[in-house]
Amino acid sequence: MCIWILSSIILNVLILDSGSGQPIDSRGITVEYDIKLSDVQTTGMLFLKNNRSVFEWLKFDSNEVSSKFNKKKGKFKINSRDTTGKFVCKKEHGKEMFSRNRTLSKYYYIKEKIPSIPWDLKQDEKVIGGYEAHKAVGAFRGRSYTVWYTPEIPISNGPWKLGGVPGLILEAKDNVGEVSFQLKKIKKNIPSVKFTKCFAKKGISWEEFRERFNDSIDRFARYMESRMSGEAKVNINGIFNIEKSIIKE
C-alpha cells in the first residue's frame, strides 16, 4: 500500500510538473514493439503519457542477473541480463532526452536534445494493426530508415530515439536489414512507476559516450584476442550498434 501511495505521489508530481497542457489521456498508452537488432530479437515497450515517454528494451528480471569473469575457467559473461535495461526517456518534442546505454564495460546515462530527424514524408500508405499508416524516410546516426506512422494517433513519437513525424511510428526499419521495430500491441494504460526512473539522472553527452564506447570496444577486442587460441581473432568491425555512427572508423 505504501509503495502504491508513494508511486502515485511521484507520478502526480511528475504530471503536475510536466509543464505543458493537461493530461491527454489519464491512463497513458503502452505500445509494444518486436525489435530486431542485428542478430538479436527482443521486445521493446513504449510508454506514453502527457508529453513524456519512456522506451525500454533488453530488460530482465532480477533473478536472471549474471555477469562474471571466471578467471580459472577463462569464462567471461557479459552482463546481458541487466535488470534496469536500456531505455530512452523523452520530454516534450524538441527538448531533452535521456537514455541509458552501455559500452562493453558499463552503463552510462546520456543526456542530449531530442534529435530533429529530417523526414521525407511519402504518399505510400498501408494498414498496420488496423491503423492507417503513412510512409516516411529519413537518416539518423549512420542509418537510413523507412518508418510507417499513423496520423490517427497524433503523437509525434516512436520506438527508441525515432520520432518527429506527424503521428506515432508503428514500424521502422533500416535499409540494410539490421534494425527493425515492428508494432506488436497497443494498449491503454501504463504501469505508474515507469516514469520515476527517468529525467533525474546526471548524464554525459552523446559525444562523450561515443568516445567511451569506442574505447571499450578496443580494450575488449585486445583482451579477448589475448585469451584465445591460435586462429581466433576478434572482429572489431562486427560490433553492432543501432547508432551506427557511434563506431569510429
Binding site: 498508452i29 494493426g129 515492428q182 500491441k185 497497443i186
Partner: peptide
C-alpha cells in the same frame, strides 16, 4: 477512444529469443 490492437504476424529472425 484509442483502439487497442495486437499484431499477430510471425516474424522470422536469424536469432530469436
Amino acid at each position: 477512444s484509442l483502439n487497442e490492437v495486437k499484431v499477430t504476424e510471425e516474424i522470422s529472425w536469424e536469432v530469436s529469443q
